[in-house]
């Protein structure tokens, strides 16, 4: 038990964080390098003002026409993404680990709120799964990898929720939880979860083209 714990929270965690950080840097650098090599003209159209304008209209709920057309999806996706990012970073148990390992600390979310947000993430995943199965236009473009990605994202939250409530098999689930978190981190730069990195660039480019050349809104 101790050996497994030390392994998953030690070397494996190192590997996960290195692959995550290194992978993200590599992906973005490779993207920009390819632009530089093959489509350098893109840089000349980029504009901070129009990029930010476009990004803001899409990261504020209901600020774009399409987000108003799908109110349920909009609420779910915003709640999901906000919780998905905030809970792992501001969970007390995680901060305790950072404090022990690196002597750094920051304010935590109340456990009760984090618990609710975790449930929201899990329910959102169920909603996304249902969309994939039920809506024809989503089903048509769904591949096996979409389900795998959804499972990768849901797993840390399902195991985390289970472990927090200390239901039977606690220590086993905790190990699974750590592993699931590491898998998700690694998956970010190496699967379509990299939309976390790339969407900023695709949005900014579209915003720059629409704002700077086309003089039209893209939201």
């Amino acid at each position: 038990m101790h050996t497994i714990y030390q392994f998953v929270s030690g070397p494996l965690a190192w590997i996960a964080f290195i692959l995550f950080a290194g992978g993200c840097i590599y992906r973005v650098a490779a993207l920009l390098h390819t632009v530089y090599q093959k489509e350098r003209f893109i840089f000349s159209y980029m504009s901070w003002r129009h990029s930010l304008n476009s990004i803001f209209h899409w990261i504020i709920p209901f600020a774009s026409v399409n987000s108003r057309k799908h109110p349920v999806m909009t609420v779910v996706t915003f709640v999901f993404h906000i919780s998905l990012i905030l809970v792992p970073i501001f969970l007390l148990s995680h901060i305790v680990l950072w404090d022990e390992a690196w002597n750094i600390t920051w304010p935590a979310l109340p456990d009760g709120l984090a618990d609710v947000m975790t449930v929201l993430v899990i329910l959102s995943c169920v909603f996304f799964l249902a969309r994939r199965i039920v809506l024809p236009e989503v089903k048509y473009v769904t591949s096996a990898s979409d389900y795998v990605i959804l499972a990768i994202v849901a797993a840390p939250f399902i195991t985390g929720f289970y472990a927090y409530h200390q239901w039977p098999g606690y220590s086993f689930v905790m190990i699974l939880h750590i592993l699931a978190g590491e898998i998700m981190l690694i998956a970010i730069p190496f699967s379509r979860l990299r939309h976390m990195l790339f969407s900023v660039f695709t949005r900014a480019y579209m915003g720059s083209e629409f704002g700077g050349v086309r003089h039209a809104r893209d939201w």
């Binding site: 714990y5 305790v96 606690y170």
Partner: peptide, 24 residues
């Protein structure tokens, strides 16, 4: 908080005995 954690968990990890997970 950290003192407690390091005192207990730190020793448990060294000795490979005793609880190390939050809920333990």
């Amino acid at each position: 908080r950290k003192a407690f954690h390091m005192n207990c968990k730190g020793c448990h990890l060294e000795q490979k005995a005793g609880p190390v997970l939050c809920g333990e």
